[in-house]
Amino acid sequence: MKRQFMLGMAISAFSAGVAMAQVAPENVEFADGAIAQSLSGTAGNADDGKKVFGTAGLGNCVACHAAVIAADIPFPGTVGPALDGVADRWSEGELRGIVANAKIMFDGTIMPSFYKTSGYIRPGDAYTGKAGTEPLPPILSAQQIEDVVAYLLTFKE
């Protein structure tokens, strides 16, 4: 009985810790386009990140980016640069910043911002064509960003 109570306390404390560590989209701090701090407070999972990378309804990164390491995901696009070796060229914080809002690192880039909720022109309700109300849900959650970053960190040459 007492032990169960203690366990419950521990879980509560852990949950509270996670909630506090999560950074809301409007509170993200960029430094030279990079985000030093984890957005979710929980380490990213590269396997989950691969799903986000390749799934049309999630990140759909593959729609624009090819990479040898992701060659098992069909139909990579060519709109964005190939991502081979990005883990050699960019730090974790830089990759996080680029995924969250690439326009801060690359002014005017076509790349959508995946962790941004307002400041849009005619924002829609996802892909319905109907009006959405800002703040919109970000395209990816804090944890999904962390997962994609963890996956990208495996892109070494």
């Binding site: 849009y120 022109i121 005619r122 924002p123 829609g124 309700d125 996802a126 892909y127 319905t128 064509g129 109907k130 009006a131 959405g132 395209i139």
Partner: peptide, 9 residues
């Protein structure tokens, strides 16, 4: 096309 930008068409 506009719908696919997640916009209000």
């Amino acid at each position: 096309c506009v719908r696919d930008t997640r916009a209000e068409t």
